Computed example of a mutant assay.
Amino acid sequence: MKSDDEKLKELFNTKETTNFAKTIRKAKVFSILKTVLLSLMIVIILSFVVLISNAKILNNMAQQKQMDLRTWYDISMPNAYIGNMQYDDRLFTGEIDYVRYRFLGNKPIADGSYKEGYGFLLINGIYGDLGYQLFAGSGNLNEITNYNIAGKRIMKFYHPSVKYDNYINNLDVVDKIGANKLAEMSLSFDKAYTVDEVRAMLPKEVTLNWYWVDTYNEKELSMAEISDKNEKSIKESVVFEENYVYGMKALDLLGNKIDKPEEMFIGAISRGSKDKNVAFIYKNIFNKLSEGKGEVKKENLKIIGVVVSGDTDSLKKLKNQNYIKAATLGAVADKY
């Protein structure tokens, strides 16, 4: 049997042990809370740094993408202009949404909404490409009509050095368009002309919107191998759609005449060579036009077609012009 002294010692020892255990538990909890709070603060600070860096990097990329896009439109996309833009920056990726418009005479018309993405990390997301076409057509390009996402006819171009079995001439349907309508048309010439010659030979009644510049080599003009309905291989003369031709805007963003369009075109070729995504296109165009001399001048620009617009009365002035080998209809809109 324990004495009173032994009982008192056990009692005090138990209290000391219990208090010490509580102190240890409190210390552990405090340490965990401290670690959690510290980790949370680090996460918050790092997230803030990442978000700020992400915004800054994407902003710079968006500005560069905008400049690249505008430069691209300076050498391509006949009679198409970039309108209002909206930027959508996310984490590591972003997107530019922009509207496009055209000039029919002096009237601007909407030409659909388009997107361009940018980013600095490969992030899974939306797949596929809306592209420029409303739907993918099939068959001989000379026989089918494609439409862009706004429902506008996609114009075609015929190179003068290529012999085609037949040429489209939509000047024959001008009378059917209607007197209260405006329209654009691509004109493919019988040979190459200078910028000044083109200005002189086109009727004053039509609006000159765009010059098609000869930027092609022999390989690009060679006949393409395709398969017919019976899967037989045949050769087809290359017909160019408006998304795959290069040239000069004759009108500025407000629809005003550009006095020296060749300067903007030549400058765009030089700037575009810095765009790593399509630099090879600019370099090929520069090499073709400069003829190895390291410089592109106005006299190097051979015009093989144009895009014009106007009302039906003005477009009728183009009928029976010997220099026109083909003419394809593009956008049509009400005059008023």
Rank of each mutant, 00 (worst) to 15 (best):
S273A: 15
E218P: 05
M248Y: 05
G125L: 04
Y147Q: 06
K2S: 14
M67W: 05
I154C: 08
W212H: 05
L202T: 00
V198E: 01
I42N: 13
K335M: 11
N277R: 10
L69Y: 01
K298L: 07
T14N: 08
F103M: 07
T328Y: 02
A224Q: 12
I52M: 10
Q133A: 07
Y244V: 07
L130F: 06
E6T: 07
N146P: 00
D111E: 02
I24D: 04
G330V: 04
R25A: 15
R90Y: 08
E6I: 10
K325E: 00
M185W: 02
I82A: 01
D4M: 14
S233L: 09
L171Q: 00
N146D: 01
Y323A: 03
N230H: 11
G151H: 06
I226L: 07
V162I: 11
Y211W: 08
G119E: 11
I109M: 06
F103G: 01
I44C: 14
R100A: 08
L253W: 10
F280A: 13
E225D: 14
E197I: 07
N243M: 07
Y246E: 03
A55N: 15
P261A: 01
Y73N: 07
F189G: 01
S113M: 14
A136E: 14
S237E: 03
A136N: 12
L37P: 02
F20E: 07
A55E: 14
L134G: 09
V198Y: 06
L208R: 04
M77Y: 06
F12E: 11
R90M: 13
T328G: 00
V239K: 02
D97E: 15
G94L: 06
L121T: 07
L11I: 14
V29Y: 11
M77E: 14
E116A: 07
L69H: 02
Y81F: 11
G294L: 02
M155R: 04
G128H: 11
N277P: 00
K28A: 14
T207P: 00
S31W: 10
G125P: 05
Y132R: 14
G255Q: 07
N60S: 15
N217G: 15
N256D: 13
K56N: 09
N60H: 08
D190N: 08
S314N: 10
I258A: 06
N287D: 12
M155L: 01
M264D: 12
A268Q: 05
Y87P: 00
N54R: 12
F30C: 00
F189M: 01
Y244K: 13
